[in-house]
Amino acid sequence: MSLVDRAPVALSERSPDFLPARDVSFGGYLVCMGGIVWRESLRFVHQRGRFLSALVRPLVWLFIFAAGFRATLGVSIIPPYETYVLYEVYIAPGLIAMIQLFNGLQSSLSMVYDREVGAMRILLVSPYPRWFLLVSKLVAGVAVSLLQAYAFLAVAYFWDVQPDSLWGYLTVLPALILSGLMLGAMGLAMSSIFKQLENFASVMNFVIFPMFFASSALYPLWRIQQANVLLWHICSYNPFTHAVELIRFALYGQVEWTSLAVVSGFGAACLLAAIYAYDPSAGLTGRRGGPDAAK
């Protein structure tokens, strides 16, 4: 499956060290994606501050917020739980989704940042198709978010926040991948559409907080419905709610089909939007102010 001709270009007496890359083959695709994931993971590992804040943020919620509010949560058994759960157990899936939300938006911010400093340019001059590069970038972001999510789950385990069975740690993996893809794709789409995302405070105000609070992360939907029907409608349509519920059910070895459909559908839509936006011929990058404006 060669996209370019195989033979090297004999321009002159060039040294054998500088033969052009021979192939944009299937193996090459894997190498390319592997390289993008590898770089993202390396960056993540090097940025200890980022790892710590990614971990500390949900743990603060777990230890402090949940401890303060555990008594106020109405006692009721809702699926997938089979008995009463402590508030910290209830909010754990929401906090995992929050990790992924932050991570998705952070990598979207890094796209904006990358675009500024030019690392994005390096990515986009790869001979592989633009959609593939974006998907690889997405996969890399998901890989990093998985590291964070499992680190959080490990700490939570010792705080007695555990699924019914250890299998839950395995069954949650596909849900984490899907929700990570959705939130990452959302970040990608946003990074291509909004130019003003450099300011993280505004991202917090306009994206993370509304998505997080208007969801089932902190309160069960039935509780929200009792409090405010309009809010309940908003929460029910919030894709983040469905990411949370998908993770919640998967931790208990169950599938929440509606959430699965919403997460897959919204994720695919965001990814398509991002691919469109980054497509050099159809996209928005060429129409919006050009390189000088992007500086």
Binding site: D23, G28, V31, G35, W38, S126
Partner: peptide, 12 residues
């Protein structure tokens, strides 16, 4: 450099 090589499909 290794990252860039990967972007061009060059194995490790």
């Amino acid at each position: 450099l290794l990252y860039h090589a990967a972007l061009h499909g060059i194995g490790r």
